[in-house]
Amino acid sequence: MMISINVKGQNYSFDFYNGTFNFSIDSSIVFNTSQKATATETEKFYSYVSAGHYAELIASLKKYREKYDLNDWIYYQLIRKTAEQISPKADNYFRYTLYKWFLLSKCGYDARLAVGNDQVIFYVKNEENISDIPFFMIDGEKYMCLNYHDYGKLFKQADAYKPVNITIPEARNAFSYKVTRMPDFKPENYAEKDVEFSYRQKIYHFKLKVNEDVQAIFKNYPGVDFESYFNIPLSRETYSSLIPILKNNLKGMDQKKGVDYLMRFTRYAFLYENDEQNFGTEKRLSPEQTLLNKYSDCDDRAALFFFLVKEIYDLPMVALLYPTHLTMAVQFDKPVGEFITYKGKKYSFCEPTPQAQDLKIGQLANKLKNIKYEIVYAYEPTKR
């Protein structure tokens, strides 16, 4: 990180994926707080900082977001890193969180704070179906907690925290967890990963470009709805190291054989391990994380298979959630083998996760037959 000093305050510069974020901090928005989180300290902080010269910093953040077309979740990582430069998390967690809240709010998001148990809870308005993080309801609106993971087991139930009532006129927008575009990472930050699998007595080799920065992006990413999850894309370098190679390998294959190839690539090119063994808890991996990680489970492979089929063939698909398994079914011109009917259309089973049997398209694992499932996502290609 480069830091220089000017008369009014400090200039900061730090790398943010493929770009560099430059910003200035006017001394009028530098405010020291105690380390103990209280409503009174929060009100003092806001009263002081909101009266200072913060407009240039907010303009810099908004300009960077627009230049690099950042989704809200990625933009929040930029705000988080900016707050870290102003007030390091390790030095004063309360103050660091106050700056995150102030910046996110002044950038237009309806963010709130609550205090209690000597903790500060930071949350933001959200209108999506998020399944695995705490939330608060205020006037019928849902606010998702952005920092509960920092407290771990010390985090209490929602009623342990009392909201701090500060009205910020520009803080009106809901925050979205959808990631529809990955950042452009620096090419030199990618490593090469050798992947291979066998299809019809032929070994196929891949040299994937993968980047550990992807792990940081999704470290505290919540359990979003399946539509949002399935549509997380690959970064440009990883995409370029995989999709053109797959398309070349699929030349000469008809559509069904090509989907079979992608199903078996997803099933056998990566080692299987369930999340409890791998992470100690349930954790969905994005398609790029599945390519990067040594192990993955059924959710991860279903998302990767969906991405590959959508990108190469753009076929209608449904995701089927069983009590302990997630699998896929694809709509072809004519159904293959066993299929399900959903809204009048026939979808053939395509199992992207290793099973006891070597399943073909149109085959379902014996253990899943006669088990109830739920269609959690149905994809219909946009008509061209």
Rank of each mutant, 00 (worst) to 15 (best):
I166F: 04
K8M: 11
S235E: 03
H205W: 13
K310E: 06
Y177P: 00
Y109N: 05
Q10F: 15
K202D: 14
E84Y: 07
K383N: 13
G223R: 15
H325I: 01
Y75D: 00
S13E: 15
N18T: 03
K383M: 14
R80N: 10
A303T: 09
R264Q: 14
I371E: 12
L234H: 02
D213L: 10
T281V: 15
G116L: 09
D72K: 02
S28K: 12
N22R: 13
D225T: 00
D72M: 03
N211D: 11
D15G: 02
K106I: 00
A59H: 10
Y54R: 10
S296Y: 06
F135M: 01
K247P: 02
L292Q: 03
K383I: 12
S50F: 04
E188Q: 15
N165T: 02
G19T: 04
S50L: 07
Y239N: 03
W73Q: 05
N92I: 08
I3F: 03
P134H: 01
N147Y: 02
L304Q: 05
T324Y: 06
K219T: 08
G19N: 06
Y199Q: 14
T42K: 05
Q289R: 10
E273F: 00
E311T: 11
F23H: 03
K256L: 07
A59P: 06
S105D: 06
A329C: 03
S228T: 12
K383W: 08
